[in-house]
Amino acid sequence: MVLVNFFSTTFLILIILSSCAYLYRISKKYQKSKYAISSLAVMLILHLVAFPFLYTLMLKSNPNSFEFKTAIHDNRKQIVLNEWIDDSKYIPSQIKALENIKLANYTILNKSLKELEQLTFTENHILHSDFDFNIPGRNFMATIYIFDKKGGLKRKFTKTGGQNELDSMKFGSVITHDISYLKDKLHYYKVKKVELDKNNFWTYATLLPYSASSLFTGNMSPLTPIANIFYTIHYITIYCIGIGVFLHFLIRNLELIIRNRKS
């Protein structure tokens, strides 16, 4: 989830900045409108990147910095809650399953993956490891298969690394690593649930549509003093630049109309 939020935020910001950079470049081709077009690019950066990102940080610090319309707030919270449930509900059972496998195969935890290339039988499982050392441009890969007594696949682990590293890697360390990873993941979701309960669920990508349109819709309103200050600066700046750009192109169009009529 963290990576998803990071990449969605990065992608959006890069798209907007690229568009603004393009506007700035083409402004040099139109000398009479150079400053108006470059000002428009600056306005878009402020309106769509700088201030929404700042508002996101403020909401992360204090979820009560802004007030949203009830429908927007509740809908967004429910979406995040559903994502949290879907992502976290199977983790405890996965941890339990791995711990059971570890306990059931305690006699071979110190065996290396190389030793498990031969079929290994324990009280409840059959284990086998397989190595792939022919992957161009990638690390070597080891796959550990765990079957039940009837031959049904119970679990599969995949590890990458150098050949010597994989050969000497212990079976117990593979399971322990996966258990630790899942426990860290579960802890992350528990922290996210606490944040969600505190209404701390906004990201740049989810906030952008509301911060960009709040001037016309009133979707969000500042509550704290610092939020009011930045919100006021935001819209005074946007109004001033926007009106200036609008008047510039209005005057340019009027000049063209007058010139055409005279000719």
Rank of each mutant, 00 (worst) to 15 (best):
S221Q: 12
D74C: 04
I238A: 09
G137S: 05
F131A: 05
S8P: 00
V191K: 13
F51Y: 14
F51E: 03
K34Y: 14
R155Y: 10
H234K: 06
R155C: 02
M58D: 02
Y189K: 03
T122S: 03
I257P: 01
L250R: 08
I85H: 08
A212H: 09
Y22N: 11
D148C: 06
Y145I: 07
K32D: 15
G161V: 01
S112K: 01
Q94E: 15
V80M: 07
R76F: 09
I175W: 02
S38K: 11
T56S: 13
H73W: 11
E67R: 14
D184F: 07
Y210F: 15
K154C: 08
Y90A: 10
K96H: 10
M169W: 01
L57M: 15
T10V: 13
H125T: 14
L103N: 15
E67M: 11
P209D: 07
P136Y: 04
K192I: 00
F171T: 02
F246H: 04
F246N: 06
Y210S: 04
L186G: 00
H128L: 15
R259S: 15
H47N: 09
I241F: 12
L127R: 02
L14Q: 03
L98H: 02
K193I: 09
F7S: 09
L116V: 06
F140L: 00
F171R: 01
K193A: 10
N199S: 14
I95R: 02
G161L: 07
R261I: 06
H73L: 14
S93Y: 14
L254I: 13
G242K: 06
I257E: 13
D197Y: 08
C240Q: 04
S19V: 09
S38D: 05
I72D: 04
Y55L: 04
A36R: 06
E83G: 05
A97C: 00
N5S: 10
Y188S: 12
N62P: 08
N62L: 03
R252D: 11
Y35S: 07
L59W: 04
K102L: 11
S173R: 01
C20A: 11
D86G: 00
N110M: 06
I101L: 12
S168I: 00
F11C: 12
T232A: 15
I16W: 04
N134H: 11
N100V: 03
L256Q: 09
N260Y: 15
F6M: 09
Y55P: 01
T158D: 08
D132H: 07
Y106F: 10
A142V: 09
M169R: 01
S39W: 15
I85P: 00
D148K: 07
E165R: 04
Q78K: 15
N64M: 08
L57S: 09
Y22Q: 11
